[in-house]
Protein backbone atom coordinates (compact mmCIF):
# COMPACT_ATOMS: atom_id res chain seq x y z
CA UNK A 1 0.00 0.00 0.00
CA UNK A 2 1.52 3.31 -0.97
CA UNK A 3 2.53 5.66 1.80
CA UNK A 4 0.27 8.38 0.45
CA UNK A 5 -2.85 6.83 1.92
CA UNK A 6 -1.34 6.82 5.37
CA UNK A 7 -0.30 10.37 4.99
CA UNK A 8 -3.71 11.53 3.81
CA UNK A 9 -5.42 9.73 6.66
CA UNK A 10 -2.99 11.08 9.16
CA UNK A 11 -3.28 14.66 7.91
CA UNK A 12 -7.05 14.39 7.93
CA UNK A 13 -7.02 13.12 11.51
CA UNK A 14 -4.61 15.84 12.53
CA UNK A 15 -6.67 18.54 10.86
CA UNK A 16 -9.80 17.28 12.58
CA UNK A 17 -7.91 17.47 15.86
CA UNK A 18 -6.72 20.98 15.19
CA UNK A 19 -10.11 22.25 14.19
CA UNK A 20 -11.60 20.58 17.19
CA UNK A 21 -9.17 22.22 19.52
CA UNK A 22 -9.73 25.58 17.94
CA UNK A 23 -13.49 25.52 17.75
CA UNK A 24 -14.80 23.47 20.63
CA UNK A 25 -15.20 24.97 24.07
CA UNK A 26 -15.78 21.86 26.04
CA UNK A 27 -12.54 20.95 27.72
CA UNK A 28 -13.09 17.21 27.39
CA UNK A 29 -13.67 17.43 23.70
CA UNK A 30 -10.60 19.64 23.33
CA UNK A 31 -8.75 17.01 25.18
CA UNK A 32 -9.95 14.29 22.92
CA UNK A 33 -8.94 16.35 19.92
CA UNK A 34 -5.45 16.68 21.29
CA UNK A 35 -5.34 12.91 21.64
CA UNK A 36 -6.53 12.67 18.09
CA UNK A 37 -3.62 14.80 16.92
CA UNK A 38 -1.20 12.70 18.86
CA UNK A 39 -2.58 9.56 17.36
CA UNK A 40 -2.38 11.05 13.88
CA UNK A 41 1.26 11.53 14.49
CA UNK A 42 1.58 8.02 15.87
CA UNK A 43 -0.04 6.62 12.81
CA UNK A 44 2.36 8.43 10.60
CA UNK A 45 5.33 7.29 12.62
CA UNK A 46 4.28 3.68 12.46
CA UNK A 47 3.63 3.91 8.76
CA UNK A 48 6.96 5.43 7.99
CA UNK A 49 8.70 2.98 10.24
CA UNK A 50 7.12 0.10 8.45
CA UNK A 51 7.97 1.48 5.04
CA UNK A 52 11.52 2.19 6.07
CA UNK A 53 11.99 -1.29 7.47
CA UNK A 54 10.65 -2.95 4.34
CA UNK A 55 12.96 -0.93 2.16
CA UNK A 56 15.99 -1.71 4.32
CA UNK A 57 15.10 -5.41 4.60
CA UNK A 58 14.94 -5.63 0.85
CA UNK A 59 18.59 -4.64 0.66
CA UNK A 60 19.84 -6.38 3.78
CA UNK A 61 18.05 -9.16 5.56
CA UNK A 62 19.48 -8.65 8.97
CA UNK A 63 18.42 -5.13 9.86
CA UNK A 64 16.27 -3.42 12.43
CA UNK A 65 16.09 -0.13 10.60
CA UNK A 66 12.94 1.88 11.34
CA UNK A 67 12.40 0.40 14.74
CA UNK A 68 13.14 3.78 16.39
CA UNK A 69 9.88 5.10 14.90
CA UNK A 70 8.01 2.37 16.72
CA UNK A 71 9.82 3.24 19.88
CA UNK A 72 8.75 6.85 19.58
CA UNK A 73 5.18 5.76 19.32
CA UNK A 74 5.44 3.89 22.56
CA UNK A 75 6.92 6.92 24.20
CA UNK A 76 4.18 9.12 22.92
CA UNK A 77 1.56 6.73 24.12
CA UNK A 78 3.07 6.63 27.58
CA UNK A 79 3.30 10.36 27.76
CA UNK A 80 -0.21 10.72 26.41
CA UNK A 81 -1.48 8.39 29.08
CA UNK A 82 0.23 10.41 31.76
CA UNK A 83 -1.10 13.58 30.22
CA UNK A 84 -4.60 12.22 30.14
CA UNK A 85 -4.50 11.31 33.79
CA UNK A 86 -3.15 14.74 34.82
CA UNK A 87 -5.34 16.60 32.36
CA UNK A 88 -8.50 14.81 33.41
CA UNK A 89 -7.63 15.48 37.02
CA UNK A 90 -7.35 19.17 36.21
CA UNK A 91 -10.63 19.13 34.39
CA UNK A 92 -12.31 17.42 37.31
CA UNK A 93 -10.91 20.03 39.67
CA UNK A 94 -12.06 22.73 37.33
CA UNK A 95 -15.53 21.30 37.20
CA UNK A 96 -15.63 21.15 40.95
CA UNK A 97 -14.65 24.75 41.25
CA UNK A 98 -16.58 26.47 38.55
CA UNK A 99 -19.14 23.81 37.64
CA UNK A 100 -18.24 23.99 34.05
CA UNK A 101 -15.72 22.56 31.65
CA UNK A 102 -15.92 25.48 29.27
CA UNK A 103 -12.38 26.61 28.51
CA UNK A 104 -13.45 30.19 27.92
CA UNK A 105 -14.09 30.46 31.62
CA UNK A 106 -10.45 29.74 32.16
CA UNK A 107 -9.18 33.10 30.96
CA UNK A 108 -8.54 34.15 34.52
CA UNK A 109 -4.99 32.88 34.13
CA UNK A 110 -4.05 36.17 32.58
CA UNK A 111 -4.36 38.04 35.84
Amino acid sequence: MPINYYIFLSVALFAIGVVGVLTRRNAIIVFMCIELMLNAVNLLLVAFSKMHHLKAAALNTATNAGSDGQLFVFFIMVVAAAEVSVGLAIIVMMYRNIHSVDINFLNRLKH
Partner: peptide, 10 residues
Protein backbone atom coordinates in the same frame (compact mmCIF):
# COMPACT_ATOMS: atom_id res chain seq x y z
CA UNK B 1 -2.30 37.58 26.11
CA UNK B 2 -6.06 37.64 26.41
CA UNK B 3 -6.22 34.52 28.53
CA UNK B 4 -8.36 32.81 25.86
CA UNK B 5 -6.81 29.42 25.39
CA UNK B 6 -8.42 29.21 22.01
CA UNK B 7 -6.74 32.31 20.78
CA UNK B 8 -3.37 31.07 21.95
CA UNK B 9 -3.80 27.88 20.08
CA UNK B 10 -5.08 29.65 17.03
Amino acid sequence: QGGQVGSYIL
